[in-house]
Every structure is written in structure tokens, then in C-alpha cells.
Simulated assay, not measured.
Amino acid sequence: MVNSIERRRFGHLPDGDDVDAVVLRNANGLRAKILTYGATLAVLEVPDRDGRSRNVVLGFATLDDYRQARGHLGGVIGRYANRLCNGRFTLDGRDVRVSVNEPPNTLHGGAQGFDRAVWRVEALQSDPAPAVTLAHVSPDGDQGFPGRVDVRVRYTLVTNALRLDYTATTDRTTVINLTNHSYFNLRGAGSGDVLDHELLIDADAFTPIDQYFIPTGERRPVTGTPFDFRTPTPIGSRIGLADEQLVRARGYDHNYVLQSGSGGDPVLAARVREPLSGLTMEVLTTEPGVQFYSGNFLNGRPYRARDGFCLETQHFPDSPNHPDFPSTVLRPGEVFQSATIFRFPFSPLSRGEES
């Protein structure tokens, strides 16, 4: 196998804009398909222990499917990943109101978030590792957010991993929180639920939510709760318990406070193992939090509730309204930078190699 990269047409939007797919392949048997619509990760094929490739992310066959679906499958989320309470916050003493699309709150950037935009292919490369850089300009006032923001995401297949690098700049003080919203199923997309997947999250605390999925401001220790994944635990083993937080979310949909904090090189945030195949995925990040979502509200063809899980690396939900949460403020002259790695350490063609 050799590294390769291919660009081809994926579809057309009603306004006439073309949407392309960029396919990356590397010498270790990994294959990723990224769409310019939403900078979406549509396919991620990984060889299992028998050398057979399987697609481990949920996606759709057509552009219309992506446009009509809910759930933000595979998209890059911005300007602000997760929720903002009542679609408002205070920034440098000024009240800011943004698009409300999950009343009474803002979810994943508003009605027309970054995952609904057509991104521009800025750069392609095959060596030393196949990569694509996608760029998007969010104008001042987009969904109510202040400042023109120039954002980029770079997808790179590195040895036995897919690496995502995000950067953003602004010409006016704003807030930003970027993530990728892929749903994973290590048995293969469309193969059923993920309740038997064994999950580890390197976090001593999580941020509880109110009835509107907004953090209460508390950092609650996971000890003695169904939210303790510090040792590998099947996703479904406690999901049905009569815990108030689980009942509110119909499962898991909570931000975890990572022990590693933020900054520096990506470090381990989570590990997932599919017991039948033994396929394992590690999530490494520079971010201070990760949203574990057990796919509770997946309800459209061909996927059903809990057919996939998300590990959305991020700053905390509703941070602009919680001064003690890590800041998401971006000012002119600063550069937002973040990196996340989805690594498959026991892939047979890359066993023992590091990304």
C-alpha cells in the first residue's frame, strides 16, 4: 500500500454550490473520506485484527441525506460547539444574542453552524502523510456571533491514526469552541448498537446538566456514580439506571473534565474497545473536556438510537456564562489552536507503531 489522495464531486446544493469529497489513504490501510460540506468526516475505514477494513463512523450516501438529517453526523462544529444558555452571553460587558435553534438555547453554533457551510479546499498533500486542509470564513454577525472568523481544519492520516488540527483567528473579540461530531461504531457503521463497547474516560469529574442540557456550573466527582469510566466499562452497563442525570439525557450526553487539562501535545482522553473484534480506538486531545454522547436521539434511517457514540473534544458547554470554566474568548491577534487524534493502536498493519 502507498499513500494517496483523490478529490471528486460528491453533489450539488440547491444554490448551485458544488460539494466535493477528498479521499485520503495511507500505507497502513487507513482510509478517510472528508466532504467540503461541513468539513464532514464521512468515512473512516480501519483494518481489524484479521486485516479486514471496516468503516467505523456513521455517515450517509448522498448530500441530500446530510442536508436533511439531524445529529450533525461527522461535521466540524462551530462557532460554538455544544450549548449556550438562552442563546446569549456577556462579552467585555456587552450582551450578545445568538441564533436559538434548540429553544431556549443555542446548539452547535445555531441554525446555520459550520457543519452547514461549504468549506474551501486550501491544500492537499500525499507525502509524508496524506492530508487535506479545509478553510471557512464566518463573517461578522454570523448567527449573531461578533467578529469575522477565519477557521481551518487539517485532516491527516498519520501512521495508525487520523489527526485533526484546528486553527482560527478573528478581527473582533468573540468566542469559539470547535469539535468534530463523528459517531463511532467500532463494529462497523450500521451494525447495530454500541452498548457493549468498553469505554475508558480519563476524567475524575463531569459537569452535570439541568433539564435543558445546560451545565449547572458544578464539577461533580465521578466516584460512586454511573459516570465513572476511569476503568474500562461497557457503555450500556449502567445507562438504564434511575440516575437523575441519565434520565434527563436519556443516557449519556455530558461533558467530562479531563485530568490532563488543555494545552501542549495531545494526551489520552478516552479509549474504546469493541469486544468481538478487539478493535480499539484511543482519543487524544489538547482540549480540557470531552462530551460523551451515547447517541440517544439518533432516530433517522439508517441509524437508530445508540447505533453510535460520540467523543467530542471541546471546551466546556456554556463557558461564556461560567467564568470559572476554561475561557473560550478569542481576541484579535490571537490564534485559536486545537488538536485531536483518533488512534487505532492495535490495527494489525500498524501494531506497535506510534502516531
Rank of each mutant, 00 (worst) to 15 (best):
R31C: 07
D171A: 07
T280Y: 04
F184E: 03
N185F: 02
Q68P: 00
M1V: 11
A161L: 02
G251V: 08
G190L: 01
P146Y: 08
Q259E: 11
E282G: 01
N321Y: 10
S294T: 15
P128K: 01
T207D: 11
D324R: 13
N255C: 14
F336Y: 15
P47A: 09
E354P: 00
V132H: 02
V272T: 08
G261T: 15
P266C: 09
P130L: 10
H181S: 00
P302V: 13
L276W: 06
L124S: 10
L178P: 00
S99H: 01
N3R: 02
L124K: 04
N160Y: 04
V335F: 10
P103Q: 06
V100I: 15
S126A: 14
R52S: 10
R31Y: 02
A269C: 05
S327C: 02
Q211N: 13
D253N: 14
A81S: 13
L311T: 11
V158Q: 03
T285Q: 07
A270T: 08
R94C: 05
R304E: 12
T170M: 03
L241C: 10
A305V: 14
F292R: 00
Q337P: 01
A269V: 12
S338G: 08
S138I: 03
Q143Y: 00
V158Y: 05
R7K: 12
L73W: 05
T207E: 12
V335I: 15
H315V: 10
T225N: 07
R88N: 09
W119R: 00
L241A: 08
E354K: 00
P103D: 07
Q245M: 10
R304I: 06
E102I: 05
P332S: 03
V121N: 02
T159G: 01
G190D: 06
G11V: 10
F344E: 01
Q314W: 08
G93D: 09
I209E: 10
V23L: 05
L246E: 07
S182Y: 11
F346Y: 12
F10R: 07
L298M: 14
D20Q: 06
D193F: 07
P234T: 14
T179A: 09
S294V: 08
F346H: 14
K33A: 10
F336W: 15
L63M: 06
P130E: 10
W119S: 03
G352N: 00
R25N: 11
V23E: 04
V2A: 03
Y183C: 04
R31V: 15
F60L: 07
G38S: 01
R148P: 13
A42H: 14
T328N: 05
E45W: 15
S262G: 06
E6I: 14
N86R: 12
D210P: 02
I235R: 03
A242Y: 15
R219H: 13
T286P: 03
A269T: 13
P226E: 09
D142E: 15
Y183R: 04
D65R: 02
P326E: 10
I5G: 08
R54E: 06
P275F: 06
H181R: 00
D50S: 13
R331F: 03
A81G: 14
R83W: 13
D95P: 13
V247N: 12
I235F: 06
E282W: 11
Y37E: 05
R8D: 13
I209M: 09
V118M: 05
E312D: 07
D95V: 15
H108Y: 10
L107M: 12
T285V: 12
T106Q: 12
